[in-house]
């Protein structure tokens, strides 16, 4: 019904109206209690189905976490410092028009419109997702390998690292008005990590367009690293020569390293990394080295002291 009515009303106006109503209702609801669950009106986000999505053999054979939990629980610090405040607040973020600039040490720098990126061959990748805070999920992302985008811009031989810059809009993102991190949020990968077939740019979730709380319209997913490496709402991808200092490294250098590979043997000063709570499960489970992707990515780090390069 919703899609049909949007064919009559201009889509943008229709959505904006709905969003304002939703946001107003949501704000009122969220004031009621800090631990409030998702309000029913917000349970479905995104909504538009992505077509031609292929299954991928890189998916794990585990039960995906409930959609409601994937959308309703997480960190999107630009909007909120708790685990659910971002859900309502992110509704006012404008995700169209959207472009991703791929620049830096490349032969053919380019600005990609989100519509063009959505036309790339899309795959569903069901990945484990492990947050540095000790919880985890299984997420059915939809996207394409970062490598396929990087190939189009032809990285130069001098490019050794890739930097990811997120959208930072003080008007719609309350925490961007506060000096919590050195905004915009930024993350980075070594070039070989970025080119690894598991490294994904996600544009969808559960077969639909990526919901705003999960980093619409496009975000990074690196399943063997802690979740914070997955920069949300990306606007710039820059190829560089030196290891970039990420937003978290600048804010708390002794707690967050550049690599941030999931590692049960390297403790974080705040959270034990030996176990994790899978959202939806009661008992904790053991955390696996590289989040269970050791066979695929272990060779990237041969000879490296993972306690030093945490």
């Amino acid at each position: 019904m919703r899609i049909k009515s949007s064919e009559i009303t201009p889509v943008a106006a229709f959505r904006q109206r709905r969003l304002l109503l939703k946001a107003a209702a949501a704000t009122a609801a969220s004031v009621a209690t800090a631990y409030a669950p998702l309000s029913p009106a917000l349970e479905r986000q995104g909504g538009e189905r992505l077509s031609g999505v292929r299954k991928s053999f890189l998916s794990v054979m585990e039960q995906p976490t409930e959609r409601e939990d994937i959308v309703g629980y997480g960190n999107f610090i630009e909007f909120a410092s708790d685990k659910s405040g971002h859900v309502e607040r992110s509704q006012l973020m404008a995700v169209r028009p959207w472009t991703v600039a791929v620049e830096g040490l490349v032969a053919k720098p380019r600005r990609f419109g989100i519509e063009d990126l959505l036309k790339l061959p899309l795959e569903e990748r069901i990945y484990r997702h492990r947050c540095v805070e000790g919880w985890s999920m299984v997420v059915p992302w939809v996207g394409f390998p970062l490598a396929s985008l990087l190939k189009q811009v032809e990285p130069l031989g001098s490019a050794k690292y890739v930097e990811f810059i997120s959208h930072a809009d003080p008007a719609s993102m309350p925490n961007v008005r506060r000096p919590l991190l050195d905004w915009p949020y930024s993350e980075g990968l070594r070039l070989d990590e970025a080119l690894h077939p598991l490294t994904l740019l996600a544009v969808g979730l559960y077969g639909e367009v990526l919901p705003k709380p999960n980093g619409a319209p496009i975000r990074l997913v690196v399943p063997w690293k802690y979740g914070f490496k997955g920069a949300k709402s990306i606007v710039t991808i820059r190829l560089v020569e030196r290891e970039p200092r990420t937003a978290w490294m600048k804010a708390v250098p002794d707690e967050y390293g550049f690599y941030a590979n999931v590692n049960p043997d390297v403790d974080h000063p705040r959270w034990s990394q030996g176990k994790e709570r899978r959202i939806g499960e009661f008992f904790k489970r053991k955390t696996l080295p590289f989040n269970g992707y050791a066979d695929q990515v272990g060779q990237l780090y041969t000879g490296m002291d993972l306690k030093k390069y945490f």
Binding site: T33, Y35, P37, E68, K83, W135, I279, G280
Partner: peptide, 23 residues
């Protein structure tokens, strides 16, 4: 009482144990 209600009716969000610890 609010926590007990939330636990019984599953309204403590995605991570109920964290919610109980925090509250």
């Amino acid at each position: 009482a609010q926590l007990a209600w939330g636990a019984a009716y599953n309204t403590l969000g995605a991570n109920p144990i964290e919610a109980i610890t925090r509250s």
